[in-house]
Every structure is written in structure tokens, then in C-alpha cells.
Amino acid sequence: MQGLPGSFPENPHARAPRLRGWLLLAPMLAWLALFVVAPAFVLLAYSFASRGALGAVEFGFSWDNYARVFDPIYLKILARSVGYAALTTVLCVLIGYPAAWFIARRPPVWRERLILLVMIPFWTSFLIRTYAWIAILKSEGLLNGLLQASGAVPRIFPEPLALLYTPTAVVIGLVYAYLPFMILPVYASAEKLDGSLVEAAHDLGAGPLRVFREVIVPLTWPGIAAGMLLVFMPALGMFAVTDLMGGARVSMIGNVIHNQFTKALNLPFGAALGVVFTLLFVLCYALLQWRGGRARPAAAPAASNS
């Protein structure tokens, strides 16, 4: 059901709102209109403006900024960001799915404790945790210290591992930052899954692989889809991890947008990138909802019986 954010829970007892209902809803509507919709339009207006003296904005109408977005160099950055975000998503599924499944299959008390344990690290500042990774990965850091102490450095690796400021470090940072966003929704789906369905499939002679592919995956798909969205989208826009752990060498789309606003003094171009980015986001969202909608009907009748 609530696999993806934005799916609407039906209430059969709901009634027609009439004037009063609308009036009551007005404050929230006004808030959304003022602080979500209006800023989006201002951003759109900026994206057609041009850069003035010393970073000022000269309003007007030109497609120049969009033309520049589709310059090969920015397309390349976009492609690379998608690549990194996709890799992060895949790794999060591979690492997170088994753990989420395992946790969901514990007795209720343990399940709740374990899932709480997944969430606790994320109550400390995300930045601070990233810095902790720097302390671990740097060449005179914890990891290399341990390798050295175990004697592995001279034997297995000729010299200390230079992990920090490499793409590997960026991927470690991204996976670390977003893993719980995968574990939690998958867990929520897996927890709902009725074990007897899996058992029934077994009894009907399906092998473990087939059970996994044809019963477990479709039934947990809403969780996977939600997790993918929650990992992929923010990973795409991330700039702090790439700056801090990648040594600002690897640019992702988030870095470029950030740079336009903080260094290049080109707000209109940054706005255009932001608009394209938002469209990309809407596309992913629609795609996942569509895919989720398609995967669900097969499993839904069975699941709703549970």
C-alpha cells in the first residue's frame, strides 16, 4: 500500500468537503502554494534569466542556460551522477535487502529493537559521520593503522591503502549515508509478508531461487521501489560527500549546482540545472510508481488476504 510516498490512502467514509472543508484545508494549501509551488516558479523564472555584473541576476527570457545544460560537459556530469547514484542504489539493495529480510523475520520484540538500532546512527549529524569516515580511511588513519599492526601492509599491500579522495571513498560514503533508506522500507514490506505464502510456494515444488524471484521479490517490491527512490534521488543531488571524501575532484550534478550558487556567481544557470534536475526526479518517481503499479497486481490479491 504505502510503498511509495505520495500514494493516497482511500477512506471509504470520506464525505464531500463543501465550503467548510475547503476553508479548513486552506492554511495548508496556502503554505504549500507559498513555500513549495511559488519558489518552484521563481526558480523557473531565474532559469530563463541571465547573469549580470558580479553575480546579479538580469531577468529576461532566454534558453541559453538550458542550451548550456545540454552541453556535452554537463551531460557527462549528469551521466556520471546517475552512474554513481545507480551504483549506490544497487549496492544498497544488495547490502540492505538481506539484512532487512533477516530483521523482518525476527520475533516482534527483536525486530523492533533491531530496526531501532538501524536508525540510531542516523540521529547524529550526517556530516559528523562523514568526517568519522575520513578519520578511518585517511592514509594515517584507523584502517591503515590496523593493517599495519596486523602486518598486512608489508605482506599483502606494498604500502598504506590510499582510499581517501578516491571514487571508492565516494561510493563508501554514499552507501553509508543512504543504506538505512533502503533497509527501512524493505523491512516494512518484508515484515508484512505472510510466511505461509512462501511456504505454499515451497510445497508446490518451487525451488528457493524461484520462490525468491516469483514470490518474495514481487511481494516486497513496494519496499524496494520506495527504497530505490529514497536512495537514488538524494544520492544524485549529494555534494557534501563528493567534496569531502572525493577531494572535490569528482563533480556530481549537486556539486555543479552548489558551485553555481556559491562560486561561479551564476544563479540563472544553477536554477536551470535545478529545474532539469527536478524534472529528472519527477521522471524517476513516475517510472517507479508505474513499475510498482505493474508489479503489484499479481501479488496484491494474495497479500490482501493476509
Binding site: 553575480g55 550558487f261 556559491t262 562560486k263 561561479a264 556567481l265 544563479l267
Partner: peptide
């Protein structure tokens, strides 16, 4: 704080 003159200008001009 900022880390470059441009960053300072950007924030000021925004």
C-alpha cells in the same frame, strides 16, 4: 565563513 571571494559575493548578491 566562506572559502573564496566569489562565495562571499554570491551570498551577498543573492
Amino acid at each position: 565563513t566562506y572559502a573564496s571571494g566569489e562565495e562571499m559575493l554570491a551570498k551577498l548578491q543573492a
